[in-house]
Design a protein around this nucleic acid. Structure first.
Lengths: 216, 216
DNA sequence: AGCTAAGATTGAACAAAGTTCATATTTATT
DNA sequence: AATAAATATGAACTTTGTTCAATCTTAGCT
């Protein structure tokens, strides 16, 4: 094994890439199949079919069905965080950062409904997901939200009499709930409709009493 | 069949009761088994074992595993609504009704964690649950919340510039999120801890601007 | 180019769990 | 007590995730 490593570095890279490619191919098929239905009613055979491979091959790349399932949100969540950074970039005050974050959150799920279904209706509600490698990616986002909230507390327009974590719970709780409802109602309405209204509603609850109407 | 109906009414009642009793027996076993794990990893054979019956018997009382699963929340939710009515009874203003409702909601799930797991982590996130007979019971609760919110809007301490439904979404969204988090963290902390704090947080978001500190 | 070994792929076979159904048992009626 | 109806049973069936021995493909070497 280590011999190979010494002899030819370039070749190994292409091998790794090929492995990665096949993994991507399986993941893509998995997103489509899992996204259309759910974990239990999606079948390995359909995923294999859609990826044009044999069922057994999947198990060379993923430990089992659950492992494959849990691997789906990893890249997407990473992409979400990266793009979010871009959207936040250049905004200086925490209020507008939070406002933009809220908008982007809803926008992202609106434009990625398959991923939304998987993350909101299956992962978010699965105990072992919280122990999975993939959940680390979600935590990055959660940390970022808390950071902005603390920033807002220092800027004194988010109330200081409560822990940042509790405030985050209200904001994320509402967002998750909203996306979940939208999915369950089969995406029949616009997830971003009256977005300003609802942000105002949540925000008025978490804004500092002595920041009256400063940002309205 | 109809002959029996004409001949002996009392006997039939006892037969119905017996059928009901067996159904209860199966449901109780199902609550225990589903509550400990989840839909997919709970097995019919374990439920049958715990109810001291054969696997096939279950299918005399329930169409299939999903039907059995969906039947669990029906009675519990009904009991929840009935008790909630008692707790609300005698409270005259919408503010304190909402406050009590919030408290009772958290209290109920705290004291019924098996049911909580089933409702929050499995049902609430399942599309076909929304079409099930059982969901009607949940809707009764939702309607009650909306009613109280509208009452509050008339009493003018809940903001009137937004639809009652949106306000309900924030309140219930937060409550569901809180219970869900608590379950996922394996009930390691007290669900009712700093309950006043969090109600204040949500309420300040939905209270009418011209009801300043009236109820604080 | 051809050989060899490692790696990747395959799909038949296996295992586990939901569901069905012919048979057996229990209960109710006369 | 006899008969019929209702209920319960568990072995057999079906489906689907998973394994694995056999086959094919690719990379490295002469």
């Amino acid at each position: 094994m280590s011999v190979v490593l010494i002899i030819n570095k370039a070749k190994i890279l292409t091998v790794i890439k090929k492995k990665d490619l096949r993994k991507q191919q399986i993941l893509q098929a998995a997103i489509e199949v899992f996204g259309k239905s759910n974990f239990q009613s999606a079948s390995i055979s359909e995923i294999a079919q859609r990826a044009n491979i044999a069922e057994g091959t999947i198990y060379q790349y993923f430990k089992n069905k659950e492992d494959l399932f849990f691997s789906i949100p990893a890249q997407k969540t990473e992409a979400f965080c990266d793009e979010l950074d871009l959207h936040i970039e250049g905004i200086h005050d925490a209020f507008n950062k939070l406002r933009k974050l809220t908008w982007y959150y809803l926008y992202f799920f609106k434009t990625n409904p398959d991923y939304a279904r998987i993350l909101m209706l299956e992962m978010r509600v699965n105990k072992s997901f919280f122990k999975s490698r993939t959940f680390g990616k979600v935590r990055v986002f959660n940390d970022k939200v808390l950071e902005i909230i603390k920033e807002g507390q220092e800027e004194n327009f988010i109330r200081n009499d409560m822990e940042g974590r509790v405030i985050r719970e209200v904001l994320l709780g509402f967002l998750e709930h909203r996306v979940t409802r939208w999915l369950l109602k089969e995406e029949k309405y616009d997830l971003l409709a009256n977005y300003g209204e609802i942000f105002d509603l949540v925000f008025n609850g978490i804004k500092s009493p002595n920041a009256e109407r400063r940002h309205m």
